[in-house]
Design a protein around this nucleic acid. Structure first.
Lengths: 187, 187
DNA sequence: TAGCCAGTATTCCAGTTAGGAAGATTCCGC
DNA sequence: GCGGAATCTTCCTAACTGGAATACTGGCTA
């Protein structure tokens, strides 16, 4: 019945499902992109702005989102809200399909494959960069996690945030370990 | 001087750099794709066959790989080997550029965001699926790791494999924990 | 010993995704 | 009422995916 959508499509559908209460008219593509950048980026590629609009147009064409045009001065602002069939499609996806295995693009691990080709100082630099980036991301995600608090209605996103923090912590530990062992080889 | 290449281009260049000894003529696109599927997929998207060939054509055009054509029956088989300027470009990339932060596409975490929309049995199912997939991947990667052994020449790939195993172990632990806490909520 | 199937090797295509640039407009502080 | 930040959308190009199509080799078996 419903055409097969990409996971990113369902992700956007899901984001629209998360706040119907405070936004009855739905969200603009711009706002949706901001939501993606705020939370989704920790466990999914935050789609490019152009892709957000492309997906929304597709979802509207399929009747999975309702659109409302509101004149905004001389210009038109279009809001997208989850439709009934959109909610049905989202639920069907959650209930009947199996999650695929995660895909990782890990530039540090990739470079590490070729570590023997360059001096150890470069490997140390890669790891230092990565560890610093991890600290920044951890701080950002911790802020998100604290925003979510103990509210039982936000338990699902909170669980995901905790998962992300555990992932970052593990990456930090492994990176630090590899760095140390590399340094030890020099001694 | 050298045009900017995608990370995937450098990954292929790196794979070609890994075994020049036993393959002086280089590898075919098909063999390269197999190498990707065997090891690269644990920390990078294994590129589609069509992309492997597209990239190799680009690298050949840029002079970063040398090609050798060998007639194979009525047809031609082309082998690709790292050229001197290819090696230089790879080293320059490793030595002068910083690794970007990893990108993750985690379908389980994505679904978990919407856990409250469906019955807990579905969440259990997602996590069970994921835990089973992790076991399979862990076994596969462990086999790769054992193939690499203690050989000091293979220390770099071995480190990456260990990193992957630590990542899988952490994911398994977190998934099991989330699963248990979800089940506890039912009690 | 012909037939078949698995494996090797490459190309083509249509569609999706990524990333960036460019634009038009509104909002807000000064 | 000016200027810059924020809002909102579109367009373009390149990268990438997945699948199908094509062609040949070699081994097994009936």
């Amino acid at each position: 019945m419903t055409a097969d959508l990409s996971t990113t499509s369902y992700a956007l559908l899901g984001l629209l499902a998360l706040d119907p209460a405070d936004a009855p008219e739905g969200l603009t593509g711009y706002e949706l992109k901001q939501r993606c950048d705020l939370t989704m980026r920790y466990y999914w590629v935050s789609p490019a702005t152009s892709q957000v609009y492309t997906e929304l147009a597709r979802l509207a064409r399929l009747g999975l989102v309702d659109t409302t045009d509101a004149p905004n001065g001389r210009r038109n602002t279009r809001r997208y809200a989850l439709s009934d069939s959109g909610r049905t499609a989202l639920l069907a996806w959650l209930e009947t399909s199996e999650p695929a295995f995660p895909v990782l693009k890990h530039p540090v691990a990739l470079r590490l494959m070729f570590a023997h080709m360059v001096g150890p100082e470069h490997v140390q630099r890669w790891l230092d960069t990565y560890i610093a980036q991890l600290e920044q991301r951890t701080a950002d995600l911790r802020a998100v996690r604290e925003m979510l608090g103990d509210d039982p209605r936000l338990r699902s996103p909170a669980t995901v945030a905790d998962w992300g923090l555990a992932y970052f912590a593990n990456e930090s530990a492994v990176a630090a370990d590899v760095r140390e062992r590399g340094a030890a080889d020099e001694g």
